[in-house]
């Protein structure tokens, strides 16, 4: 059974159609790139899978069940924007996560924080933007989830931070779990992807195994992307 199955998912705001008939299966144990230019519908699709948006039609199943408490238990989600209460200290946030998520591992979180030389008693609003993002990533990756959904985790960061983020993802994702990484910066992450999903103007444009695509097209995923999405 697919981890996530989207069947005919449509989403529009008024007359503005964001997602058009998305059919998709996310298998277990894969790192998947959700690739598309800005405004192609990546974030909308991700928010639907996380239960933050309602579909207009179509169904989304996670482990065969509709989006709800059970799907939220197994999905660890990093939104593209800051989403925790910045009045809380890192320690409070860790307690918050471990109170609500059975699969949250505080030890992992503290170990990762130690590497950043962060004082757990510091409040988030005293930290730099980059540090806040790292803390949020640590919280998300410290869960032993079935599916990690990371929305633009490397958007607008410097190369050192990018390496830190990719390292943290690769080191900490749960065995047998899948990871969905949405991005428009493909060359930075393509070597860690098993599969890619190209999304364009709200429709799935191309899906496939990353290495097979490289073989059949003789190009890097980034080049294929540039080719397909040429303006």
């Amino acid at each position: 059974m697919a981890l996530v199955k989207c069947d005919g998912v449509c989403k529009s705001y008024g007359k503005n159609s964001i997602l058009k008939n998305i059919n998709l299966e996310i298998p277990k144990g894969k790192i998947i790139g959700l690739l598309g230019p800005n405004g192609s519908g990546k974030t909308t699709l991700i928010k639907i899978i996380n239960g933050l948006l309602e579909t207009n039609s179509g169904t989304v199943l996670v482990n065969g069940e509709k989006i709800g408490i059970n799907s939220k238990k197994v999905i660890s989600y990093l939104p593209e924007r800051p989403y925790v209460n910045f009045n809380m200290s890192v320690k409070e946030l860790i307690n918050y996560f471990s109170d609500f998520y059975d699969n949250f591992d505080s030890d992992t979180a503290y170990k990762l924080l130690e590497k950043l030389n962060l004082n757990p008693n510091d409040k988030l609003n005293t930290m730099s933007k980059g540090m806040k993002e790292k803390v949020q990533l640590i919280l998300v990756m410290s869960r032993k989830a079935d599916l990690y959904i990371l929305d633009e985790p490397i958007g607008g960061v410097d190369p050192a931070t990018r390496d830190y983020i990719l390292d943290t993802i690769l080191t900490n994702f749960n065995d047998g779990a899948s990871v969905i990484i949405s991005t428009h910066l493909i060359s930075d992450i393509e070597k860690i992807l098993d599969e890619v999903i190209f999304i364009k103007e709200g429709s799935i444009y191309l899906t496939g195994d990353a290495d097979e695509l490289r073989t059949s097209k003789g190009m890097s995923i980034d080049e294929i992307f540039r080719e397909e999405f040429k303006c």
Binding site: N50, L52, I69, N70, K73, Y77, P79, R81
Partner: peptide, 10 residues
């Protein structure tokens, strides 16, 4: 924005 966390809690 905090709702992103609140509504993804089980």
């Amino acid at each position: 924005d905090e709702g992103y966390l609140t509504h993804t809690l089980p």
